Amino acid sequence: MDYVYTFLIGGAICVIGQILMDTTKLTTPRILVIFVVAGVVLQAVGLYEPLINLAHQGASVPLPGFGYTLAKGAMEGAKEGFLGAITGAVKDSAAGIAVAIAFGYIVSLIFTPKSPLK
């Protein structure tokens, strides 16, 4: 049953993103920011944690999961003070950020981007 919930929740998040891309004039970066902010807001009101517990990686891997991780780290760090709120978010999401930067760099070395405006 865990796999079913993971697939359904993760798929639903992806479907929402695809619907936003197909039916609105929002650019892809704006949609990505909306997803991250949605994860932060849902964590702040206590709704994303139960979704993580239900769907596991289906809810933590997409971009709202990154927002959730940032918010959770900031909330835990805020117990230590203002500086803890800032560093807590970075500590909890550092692995994901480091991997994204490393793979982005590796891909940039392998492939040559093509400019759409020629």
Rank of each mutant, 00 (worst) to 15 (best):
G17Y: 10
D2I: 01
A89Q: 12
I52K: 01
S60R: 11
K79I: 02
F103V: 07
P64G: 12
A38E: 06
G81D: 12
Y68H: 14
L117P: 01
A94T: 10
G84Q: 04
A55E: 15
F7Y: 04
G81V: 12
G88A: 01
T28K: 13
I97P: 06
G84W: 06
T87M: 12
H56S: 13
G77P: 09
D22Y: 05
I16M: 13
V90L: 14
M21E: 13
G96F: 13
K91I: 15
F35P: 02
I52F: 02
L63A: 11
E49C: 01
L20K: 03
G17F: 08
V107W: 00
G17K: 06
Y48A: 08
I86L: 08
G81A: 07
V61S: 13
M21R: 15
A59Y: 01
L20N: 04
K79C: 02
Y5V: 00
I86H: 05
G17R: 09
D2E: 02
P50G: 10
F103Q: 08
Y105L: 06
A59T: 02
I52Y: 04
V90A: 10
E49Y: 08
H56D: 14
A89Y: 09
I13V: 14
L109V: 09
G46C: 12
G84T: 04
I86R: 08
I86E: 03
G77V: 06
Q18T: 06
A38K: 07
C14F: 07
M75Y: 13
C14S: 13
L83M: 11
E76H: 14
L26G: 02
I101V: 11
T28Y: 09
G84L: 11
G84H: 06
M75Q: 15
P64C: 14
P113S: 00
F103M: 06
A89H: 09
M1D: 05
I101A: 10
D92G: 07
V41A: 14
G65H: 02
H56R: 15
L8M: 03
G88S: 05
F103H: 02
L109Q: 10
T6L: 08
L47I: 07
T28V: 08
D2C: 01
I52M: 04
L47M: 15
K25V: 09
K79Y: 03
Y48T: 12
